[in-house]
Design a protein around this nucleic acid. Sequence first.
DNA 1: GGAAGTTACCCACAACTACCCACAATCTTA
DNA 2: TAAGATTGTGGGTAGTTGTGGGTAACTTCC
Lengths: 154, 154
Amino acid sequence: MTLTNNTFIGEYAYALDLKGRVNVPAKFRQALSKENKNTFIITRGMDSCVWVYPLIEWQKIEADLRNLSSLSNIHRTFVRNTARYASPSTYDKQGRITLSPSLVEYAGLEKDVLIIGMINKMEIWNPSELKRTDNNTIKIDPTAYDDLADKINI
Amino acid sequence: MTLTNNTFIGEYAYALDLKGRVNVPAKFRQALSKENKNTFIITRGMDSCVWVYPLIEWQKIEADLRNLSSLSNIHRTFVRNTARYASPSTYDKQGRITLSPSLVEYAGLEKDVLIIGMINKMEIWNPSELKRTDNNTIKIDPTAYDDLADKINI
DNA sequence: GGAAGTTACCCACAACTACCCACAATCTTA
DNA sequence: TAAGATTGTGGGTAGTTGTGGGTAACTTCC
């Protein structure tokens, strides 16, 4: 049973091995193989996690970045900070991607990791880090969800 | 694993040797070889860094410069300063380019350098210089930065 | 024209990465 | 329930990548 086109949902628990490899959920692999040439773009997430984009999704971001002229100081900085932590990767014959030591450190990943579908990308978390982030966010602004209510008809 | 067409992303740490040579990240080399005839245009960056364009990207800039009339003072100055520091270069059999002493001095490069993918070009930095520039820019105008992030929909 | 300095090309080696194989655990199907 | 297929995890190895240094060709300057 494969997923909708390039759409990631669900939660999966895997082990990060000593070489920095993590499994990509089988369901996600199938949704990716054709147009994306088995390629992901791996980068820092905005929380303490790793973001993994399928090539097609990343190319949308890339196209936007291309339109920012380096004559502008703030544009340069933005392009740099977006591009700098990203790197392409394919999964191996067993369906795993390799995370760089610097990404593992950034996200505070240990042996047990959680992969979460985020519709257009997936996230890789240290489970305890996720729990903390989650608690904090909702504590800061308990009514934040309410503002979304008229945008999303759940 | 090769990159998207002529697109540079990621961050790589290398050593500048006594002869002024730096490695070009293997991933960048592959994206370049065909249309670009292994040729780069190396020049001063707008921050304290070195910019390295693949030939194809540089030719786009050249085309734009051709359209700036020399009747305008500011145009003349801009064309002059863009053209004067640029020089072509190829990488050697081991994949390294040689930087001129004047560029090394301009960017304040020492032994450890950081190469950063900037979508249409790459930058060569002294890591401590980069940290300073980065902090300053975001401090100057944090909301402009957020506006960009919002527009690009990362 | 010859010496000194500079540049470009070549070789060598250490470190790392990607690829391959193996096997256990889980799921599917008959 | 048993057999086969798929999925998740570990480790070995060949090939690639990064770095240093040597030598020959080419410039520059007296």
